[in-house]
Computed example of a mutant assay.
Amino acid sequence: MDTDSKQTHVHAVFESIAPKYDMMNDILSFRRHKAWRRFTMRKMEVKPGQSSLDLCCGTCDWTIALAKASGNGRTVGLDFSRNMLDIGQAKIDKLGLGDQITIVHGNAMELPFPDNSFDFVTIGFGLRNVPDIIKTLKEMKRVVKPGGKIVCLELSKPDWQPFKGIYYFYFEKLLPLMGKWFVKRFEQYRWLPESLESFPDLQALAELFRDVGMRNVKAYPLTGGVAALHIGTKGNDVL
């Protein structure tokens, strides 16, 4: 699938599953995605007043968590799916965080922000869906401040048996069926295992972080390697 085709396909997938996205995340991950995000937030150590940009923010759960952690820090959520953003905006309004959080309809590969703008740039369960991973990581690095961090929380590839075999059976065979049963979306949820096939594993993604110039790169496997957290720091001498 070429870049334009992937972008069009992924956009259509997320536009269509937006209304049931949060519910299906809970079901398909057995609610582990919330524990993974809490672990990530502990590792990030967001300080009061620090700014964050959350890419592929979807329905804005991580965006909201970043805003709350920073107290009054500027927080921006960006996504290319208008339907997902509409659900996220409703959450933000309900929590009274509209003055702190700004939602942007945009492209993670072409960020509409100046260089060195944020203390943190995050992407949660979205990097495997972008057409160009390197371009996205370079954009994340560009807009994060020197000394700031780029953070990726994403599905990964377990490598030990028998867990690996059980996981791939669930992910490739059962998960799309669950999408069909619960929300009548078989083809859309078949995209999830397809999107992971060519995605870098734990160590390969860490190397991509280093390739784009991030320093002190750390990678953490989560739940037996089902997911992974990557954190890299932008050097203070990098403009």
Rank of each mutant, 00 (worst) to 15 (best):
N116A: 15
D61R: 11
K135V: 14
P131A: 10
K218L: 10
M214N: 00
D54W: 01
N129G: 13
A65Y: 05
D159P: 05
G49I: 01
G96P: 13
K234P: 07
R42E: 13
A69H: 07
T136V: 02
A65W: 05
A206T: 05
F118M: 02
V151N: 02
L202A: 02
M140P: 11
G225R: 00
G232D: 04
L202P: 00
W62T: 15
E139R: 11
D201A: 08
K68W: 03
F186M: 09
S198F: 12
H105N: 11
D86R: 15
T8A: 15
S29V: 07
I27Q: 05
S5G: 05
R215P: 07
Q100H: 11
C56T: 14
Y167F: 15
L97S: 02
R42H: 10
L192D: 03
N107V: 01
S51C: 04
V212I: 01
F39K: 11
D61Y: 11
T8L: 15
T8S: 15
Y170H: 10
M140G: 10
R32M: 14
F182A: 06
L85T: 09
Q89I: 15
P200Y: 04
D159Q: 14
K68F: 04
F80I: 08
L177P: 03
R185N: 13
D22S: 09
N25E: 01
C152A: 13
Q7S: 13
R142I: 06
P176I: 07
L78V: 03
W62D: 14
P200T: 06
A108M: 00
K218P: 02
P200I: 06
D2G: 11
L155C: 06
K157P: 01
Y167P: 12
P112Y: 00
K43Y: 06
V238G: 01
P221Y: 09
S195G: 09
A204G: 10
K145W: 10
S51G: 03
M23D: 14
P19H: 07
L177W: 12
V13W: 10
R38Q: 13
G165A: 10
M140L: 12
V151I: 12
P114W: 02
Q7C: 02
C60Q: 13
K20N: 07
A67T: 07
S81R: 08
S117R: 03
F14V: 04
F171P: 03
K234V: 02
S5P: 01
A108C: 05
G124F: 12
W62K: 07
P48T: 07
E154K: 03
T63H: 01
G225A: 01
L196W: 02
G71S: 00
A69M: 08
G213I: 04
I101N: 05
R37L: 04
R38V: 14
F169W: 14
K218D: 10
S81M: 05
L192H: 04
E197H: 13
E45G: 09
N116E: 14
G49F: 00
T63C: 00
D22N: 12
D159M: 12
